[in-house]
């Protein structure tokens, strides 16, 4: 009998990997830093997910439930890996709780960290209460409270969503596209228009990247919900004490714009997990030059890192959608399973 598989991170990728390995009769130990499973969609209180429109608590909640009830899966919440040693097939991981977990392979599903908008001070986050992040609007929607101005609780009549906050920006060392913010913003704009039909929603963009089938969400937001898209990167966000004032240039018509809004939303990007330096040193794996966990192989073995026997999946590898994270979790599980089973067969 082989040793269990160690999965670090209980978000969509980790839950998928744990479930698929348990389904084929393998023992799994799932380690989660927080006290709750579900990852960013649950911990950050996302509302409806793209593209299914299901609520995060239902969709990801179901993934959590089937893992929690599975006899093949041992769950360790509130724990991190502090030491990791050994060779493929015979690894030992020491946890912050003092436990030592013998394992045959590990899959890192350690996810990302939301960009903190205070790092773009010119856009008013942290200065004006009515400047919020997409995560906060998700929480307004998922809590049932609805989209309101934090300053006075009123329904906004004009909302601006600024794209590429913390993405595609050399000034703050974040040169990657966070992949999902365009789509999430288009979806969010539609949700705002559905809840508040009198509210005008403007999206300020550099490029629109609603890739693949998500293009449908972009089209719908314009055709059905009349969301307005303006090609402009905003210079600064100020306030007259009540309204939030957005200043920029409508580049397509070469016209300066200074527009008052009730609510400004930052479509924040996905940073590498803040713990990635630590993870890289504990597990002895390489980082991508932008700080994500590096995938060693694109075509041959899915989810391989620079260390044999250690795999990676989900947004730990770079900005990723939930459905692709789940696919990567399954793919990494298959890679790990193939390697471990292959090794034990060779030994017999």
């Amino acid at each position: 009998m082989t040793k269990p598989f160690l999965i670090i991170g209980g978000g969509p990728a980790g839950l998928a990997a744990a479930h698929s390995l348990a389904s084929v009769g393998q023992k799994v130990v799932l380690v989660e830093k927080e006290n709750k499973l579900g990852g960013a969609p649950i911990l950050s209180g996302y509302a409806k997910l793209v593209p299914s429109g299901e609520w995060a608590k239902d969709a990801i909640g179901a993934m959590v439930d089937r893992v929690v009830g599975n006899p093949n899966i041992t769950i360790k919440t509130g724990a991190t890996v502090v030491e990791f040693s050994g060779e493929p097939g015979t690894f030992t991981a020491k946890l912050s709780t003092g436990d030592a977990i013998d394992n045959s392979a590990s899959i890192l599903c350690t996810g990302f960290t939301h960009f903190d908008s205070v790092n773009k001070p010119e856009w008013g986050f942290g200065t004006f209460p009515d400047v919020v992040s997409t995560t906060q609007v998700e929480q307004m929607i998922s809590s049932g409270q609805g989209v309101r101005r934090p300053s006075n609780g009123e329904k906004p009549k004009r909302v601006a969503i600024l794209l590429c906050v913390g993405s595609r920006d050399r000034q703050i060392g974040r040169e990657w596209c966070s992949k999902i913010c365009c789509t999430v913003s288009a979806k969010m704009a539609m949700e705002i228009r559905e809840e508040l039909p009198d509210c005008h929603v403007y999206i300020y963009y550099m490029d629109i990247r609603t890739f693949g089938l998500y293009e449908e969400i972009y089209w719908k937001s314009q055709e059905e919900q009349k969301v307005k898209y303006i090609k402009a990167r905003i210079a600064e966000v100020t306030s007259d004490g009540d309204k939030v004032i957005v200043k920029g240039e409508d580049t397509l018509v070469k016209r300066p714009i200074t527009i008052p809004f009730d609510l400004v939303v930052h479509a924040i990007g996905m940073d590498p997990n803040v713990d990635n330096m630590l993870i890289s040193s504990v597990f002895g794996i390489d980082l991508h030059h932008w700080g994500f966990l590096k995938q060693e192989n694109t075509y041959g073995v899915m989810g391989a890192t620079s260390r044999p026997g250690v795999y990676v999946a989900g947004s730990a590898t770079g900005p990723e959608t939930i459905d692709d994270s789940i696919a990567q979790g399954n793919a990494a599980a298959m890679s790990a399973l193939a390697a471990v089973v292959g090794q034990s067969m060779a030994a017999e």
Binding site: K231, R233, E249, T251
Partner: peptide, 24 residues
Amino acid sequence: CWQCGSCTNSCTINAINPDFNPRY
């Protein structure tokens, strides 16, 4: 340059004269 307009809308001179447009 990918024409986002950050230069023009942060520009000191553009604030006085909208015809001064580095992005353009």
